[in-house]
Simulated scan of single mutants.
Amino acid sequence: MQGFVYERLPARVIFGHGTFRRLPEEVAGLGLERALVLATPQQAQEAERLAATLAGRCVGTFAGARMHTPVEVTAEALETVTARQADGLIAIGGGSTTGLAKAIALRTDLPQIVVPTTYAGSEMTPILGETTDGRKTTQRSLKVLPEVVIYDVDLTLTLPAGLSGTSGINAIAHAVEALYARDGDPITALMAEEGIRALARALPKIAGDPLDRAARGDALYGAFLCGACLGAVGMALHHKLCHILGGAFDLPHAQTHAIVLPHALAYNAAAVPQAVARIERALGGVDAPRRLHDLAGAVAAPRALRDVGMPEAGIARVADLALANPSWNPVPLERDGIERLIRRAWEGLPPA
């Protein structure tokens, strides 16, 4: 057994059915008197209903969160925070809303409560990705780690089956890369394998019956575990490419992860046999990259970058950006290999 460092992140997690009803109690527990509720435009009504449950402890809503956390949206939200003298943030929704809460917290140090309604997992991390002028950059800071996360399985029952599939594979991506992270540890590896197993078991069931409460519970549990993995260790090529693609072409976040993951794992697989063995055990069979590709098909997720809006001419640009500021990866980044990876993902071919 090799030595390792494991640092438990200081977040309070509440998980179950009907846990949303505990929100006023958690707001009071943090001493908030003027909380601001954040959401995307599509979830504006949910944000208003949430705000109404908080009586005098809420100063309204800001329903302008967008994918990839553009800095101009954060600036607009900060004006609302200042104008209403907010003393805390409540984010309801997926990664876009969580990202906005984190961006505000980084600049103000306001406490956050996150109520996830997708399987994004970012609520469990001290990581913030922001987009400026078509380029997405990330940073780690405990200032952006939410103080409280309320997982309510019931709130995911209305998540469309298609988005459930892509969001769930996005979560699996966190665990896959955690299994071969440079700073990985055995505790995180246990969570990663269990998270992949739970989601891989649940997502096809949800695709067949979105109201399957047991499957929804498994999926949200898996997303929690995978998010905790993302928060505990560093990531590699897969996340690098997805951030580039999202920032450069404004591609949908979860769908991009679902498309790229099998190809990124195939690129690294030969160098990380122990990680691949764990992934295959969780997925229930050999050839982990192909099984992830097949899982995307089973949940009707897109499998080609061209189908989510990436231009073919952008393939070379992605390779340029990946090599311009390379992050750690178990296999060295080579231009030809990266271009082949993106080409296959663009065309929707099985991973090589």
Rank of each mutant, 00 (worst) to 15 (best):
T132P: 09
A44I: 09
V71D: 14
L38Q: 00
S141E: 09
L50P: 00
T108N: 01
P24W: 07
I90A: 07
D87F: 01
Q85K: 14
A52S: 15
E46F: 10
Q139Y: 11
E25R: 14
R57W: 02
G93F: 01
R140I: 01
A83F: 07
V73W: 04
P24K: 11
P41W: 06
S141R: 12
T118L: 07
I104A: 07
L89K: 11
T80F: 11
Q42R: 13
A51P: 13
G95M: 01
T98Y: 01
T82M: 09
R57C: 02
R84D: 03
T117H: 01
D87Q: 08
P111G: 09
V81T: 00
A120L: 07
Q85R: 15
V37T: 06
Q139G: 13
V37G: 05
E76I: 03
I104K: 00
I113H: 00
E72P: 05
S141W: 11
D133R: 15
H68M: 08
T132V: 15
Q139H: 10
S96A: 14
L78A: 07
T131R: 09
L38F: 06
E76H: 04
L106S: 06
T61I: 15
G60W: 03
T137H: 13
A52N: 11
A91Q: 00
A63Q: 04
A44G: 14
E123I: 05
S141F: 12
T69I: 14
K136L: 05
S141I: 12
K102A: 07
R49I: 11
G31K: 11
T138H: 06
T82A: 13
